[in-house]
Computed example of a mutant assay.
Amino acid sequence: MSESTPETRAPMHPYLVLLIAALAPGSGHWAVGNVQRGVMFAWFMFILGWITWRITGPEVSPIGKLSGGLIIYAVSVLDAYRIARFRWTRFHAGRGTGA
């Protein structure tokens, strides 16, 4: 029986993962198959967003109040892209052009 392993299927294109990751927290990690990491990033994004909302003063803009969560969100997008790029490069380097 022939099973399809992650090494035999082409991974998702990194730019597509980048687009998916920008849509919702943790979705980029879900797209590359690392759901637990995506949930962790989403959890910390919400927690740090809530903390910065609570400790900032009333004169701070809403973007500033959510800055802790937004930083984690930006890091999660870049992390999902990095993982996808690594897998994409490794997969296509292994295929080679033949000699």
Rank of each mutant, 00 (worst) to 15 (best):
S2V: 04
S2M: 10
E3I: 08
E3L: 12
E3R: 12
E3Q: 06
S4N: 12
S4I: 13
S4E: 15
T5C: 04
P6N: 15
P6C: 10
P6M: 15
E7V: 14
E7M: 02
T8C: 07
T8W: 13
R9A: 12
R9C: 09
R9T: 14
R9H: 08
A10P: 09
M12S: 05
M12N: 08
M12A: 11
M12Y: 03
P14M: 02
P14H: 04
Y15K: 13
L16H: 07
L16C: 06
L16W: 11
L19R: 07
L19A: 12
A22H: 08
A22Q: 07
L23R: 03
L23F: 09
A24M: 09
P25F: 10
P25S: 15
G26S: 00
G28Y: 03
H29S: 01
H29C: 06
G33K: 01
G33Y: 03
N34L: 15
N34Q: 10
V35T: 08
V35L: 11
V35W: 12
Q36M: 15
R37M: 01
G38A: 03
G38H: 00
G38I: 00
V39I: 14
V39K: 00
V39L: 04
M40F: 12
M40D: 07
F41T: 01
A42F: 00
W43Y: 14
W43G: 14
F44K: 05
F44L: 09
M45K: 02
F46P: 04
F46Q: 13
F46E: 08
L48P: 01
W50S: 11
W50P: 09
T52R: 03
T52N: 04
T52D: 06
T52H: 07
W53A: 13
W53H: 08
R54N: 13
I55F: 05
T56F: 13
T56N: 15
G57A: 07
G57C: 06
P58K: 11
E59V: 11
V60Y: 03
V60S: 01
S61P: 02
P62A: 11
P62V: 06
I63M: 12
I63S: 07
I63Y: 06
G64M: 05
G64V: 02
G64I: 03
L66M: 13
L66F: 00
G68A: 06
G69R: 00
L70Q: 00
L70A: 05
I71F: 04
I72H: 00
I72R: 00
Y73H: 12
A74R: 00
V75K: 04
S76Q: 12
L78V: 14
L78S: 10
L78F: 06
D79S: 09
A80V: 05
Y81F: 12
Y81R: 02
R82N: 04
R85F: 07
R85G: 04
F86I: 11
F86E: 13
F86L: 10
R87D: 05
R87G: 00
R87M: 02
R87N: 08
W88F: 15
T89K: 15
T89N: 12
R90K: 06
F91R: 07
H92W: 11
H92C: 06
A93T: 04
G94S: 13
G94W: 03
R95M: 08
G96N: 15
G98N: 02
G98D: 06
G98M: 09
A99L: 14
A99P: 15
